[in-house]
């Protein structure tokens, strides 16, 4: 068994050192003797969506995000199908926005998203920047997770979509409704970087467990010594 991770647009969407998330996924698998492989996909490349247990997409600068947006529109359906079939997805910041229904910029122009999350994002005045803490039930019990947010977009969830958690400190999706991120099955969108996964290992291990389940492997994870 080998856990297969697809890192979408690593050359374009990598602005907040989110590769720390990939490093963490790989290390925490290998420390437990779980084989893992990461493959990157760029513009114009079409991955075999069903060959992966875990998809990862983060944020980039505006220019790069616009390039990705056009590319992703052409192949988003494959990603949605894979997620519906139980693959895990983690989308951070710009990647989270791109997977919603649309993004409306300050001039009123709209970029169409993939629609994987029932959510849309509207450019706001001023950016939400700073350390953020939320409480989530993603692992089945209340869990606090921490990260850093830096976004100008305000994201609003559709009524049928649950946030990843409630904001304890910081702004979250829109600074108003107290929600942070979005969850659909095994797909998670969030504004938390920092990076997210090395800091929040219980959350990380839950993602790994779900990816292992998708791979049809044993989901029992050996404990790791996370003391530093």
């Amino acid at each position: 068994m080998e856990l297969r991770i697809s890192h979408l647009y690593p050359d374009l969407l990598n602005i907040y050192a989110d590769r720390g998330n990939i490093i963490t996924l790989v290390r925490r698998c290998r420390w437990r003797g779980i084989a893992v492989r990461v493959e990157g996909f760029g513009l114009g490349e079409e991955p075999d969506w069903h060959a992966y247990d875990f998809f990862y997409i983060s944020g980039g600068q505006d220019r790069e995000q616009n390039l990705v947006c056009r590319d992703l529109a052409a192949k988003g359906a494959g990603l949605v199908e894979a997620v519906q079939a139980g693959a895990v997805l983690l989308a951070i910041c710009g990647g989270y926005q791109l997977l919603g229904e649309y993004y409306r910029d300050a001039g009123g122009g709209e970029l169409e998203g993939v629609g994987l999350f029932s959510a849309h994002t509207i450019a706001g005045e001023g950016r939400f920047i700073g350390n953020e803490v939320i409480e989530t039930e993603f692992t089945g019990a209340p869990l606090r997770i921490a990260g850093f947010e830096n976004h100008g977009g305000r994201t609003w969830l559709g009524e049928d979509t649950r946030p990843l958690g409630r904001v304890i400190r910081g702004h979250g999706n829109n600074g108003e409704d107290g929600g942070e991120g979005a969850v659909r099955g095994n797909a998670v969108g969030t504004y938390l970087h920092g990076p997210l996964l090395p800091k929040n290992t219980a959350f990380t291990d839950e993602l790994i467990r779900r990816a292992l389940a998708h791979a049809g492997a044993d989901t029992e994870l050996a404990p790791l010594d996370d003391a530093i």
């Binding site: 990598n14 050192a17 850093f148 830096n150 920092g194």
Partner: peptide, 9 residues
Amino acid sequence: GRDISWIWD
């Protein structure tokens, strides 16, 4: 920089 995530880069 308040955001220390850069060390992962």
